[in-house]
Design a protein around this nucleic acid. Sequence first.
DNA 1: TGGACGCTTACATTTGCCTGACAGTGGCGG
DNA 2: CCGCCACTGTCAGGCAAATGTAAGCGTCCA
Lengths: 224, 224
Amino acid sequence: MRILLVEDDPMVADGIREGLEKAGFAVDHTAAAEPAESALALTHYDLAIVDIGLPRMDGHELIRRLRRRAIEVPILILTARDGLDDRVIGLDLGADDYMVKPFHLPELLARLRALIRRSRSATTSELSAGSLRLDLARRTASSRGAPLELTGREWEILQQLMLATPNVVDKQKTVESLSEWDKELTTNAVEIYISRLRTKLQGCGVEIRTIRGIGYRLDEILLA
Amino acid sequence: MRILLVEDDPMVADGIREGLEKAGFAVDHTAAAEPAESALALTHYDLAIVDIGLPRMDGHELIRRLRRRAIEVPILILTARDGLDDRVIGLDLGADDYMVKPFHLPELLARLRALIRRSRSATTSELSAGSLRLDLARRTASSRGAPLELTGREWEILQQLMLATPNVVDKQKTVESLSEWDKELTTNAVEIYISRLRTKLQGCGVEIRTIRGIGYRLDEILLA
DNA sequence: TGGACGCTTACATTTGCCTGACAGTGGCGG
DNA sequence: CCGCCACTGTCAGGCAAATGTAAGCGTCCA
């Protein structure tokens, strides 16, 4: 997991870098947009974190130029508290998510992981969480090398959960996505598959949590 | 991953459908705009693929009507080779991407995935006060990176308070917003949830102030 | 100081979720 | 064509969390 951090404030940059490295990411850092552009053009990064307020060429301009050159790396932008417009503009230009400064590191980490996961599903059609791996194209799942036998429904629901993490999957939407055109389905059906999935997912370093009245969320289990 | 395909040519439709299903998408198909509109209004789709040249109501009209009804599903339009204007008009009306016929399936798949990814990640909306953060889309609350477990009612009330700060939230209005259509509720219920929220919000740099006879107000605590 | 309002604890009720048992369905091999 | 699967989804009992009522106490203000 390699990340490029584009941030001109040395204090902030060091803080973020340290946190990311502790979490197991490899971090490269530039203080300005121009070297960032070359770095992204030359090497592969799994993600770029871009501060909007940069000297000379600002973050927006950087994003615009990258996208124009069809560099598809996922981008997370950092904005000041009151920069509502910054976020909107940034997302329009092709950024994928944003964080408002000051922020807490665990939240940043969660978002990074989510972004990387999604971008992988867009290109390689593989997803992973804990020791669990899904191959969307082949429709297979495995954990620690051992294949998991999943039925059609189980697969469908697990896929939704994996694509959404760490967000909540709405139970009602899940019901609809399982339903065919007119056929109605009780929410209980979903509960059943969740139940069956839970037993199959034991030992996969992953847990399906119930959000009462809303739906379910897939969490990675952090080892003690 | 559920996709609605709106395409009147049966040959083309079958080809696309087959390719999408092989890639793991669930595909529903309509040959005209009217049933597509109802389908999109009734159920959740992750994406809609709309052919511009449809009998009776054309694709542009469909998109216009959908967006007018605030149906936010990502839309990819299919246009004929020479329909340059079609693309421009379509994108202006609120489509998210286009493909020119004839096209290669892998490219279509790549674009679909990119669109779905974008629509998922760009929908964050959050509120913050003190060290407290609410993510309205995810329905989660956190403080300093640590998630807060909130029940439905607690969430509802906290959200009202956060949206209102620094203004006062009228207690009577809160009662009404919690009450179902006919069900009466005592103001005491609100007091209970305020009480429970207060204990959960300790250490979040935030305080719920009582305005006697009126309601409550959320204040940030200024550190000494 | 009294009364209205608000806070909090205890508890009963309601709601939503989990899961075992079982029936319907369709594919497949004999 | 039949029986054997695997898969799907309904039902119903049990359970736990969430909700809201009642009641006792604290607090504010006239």
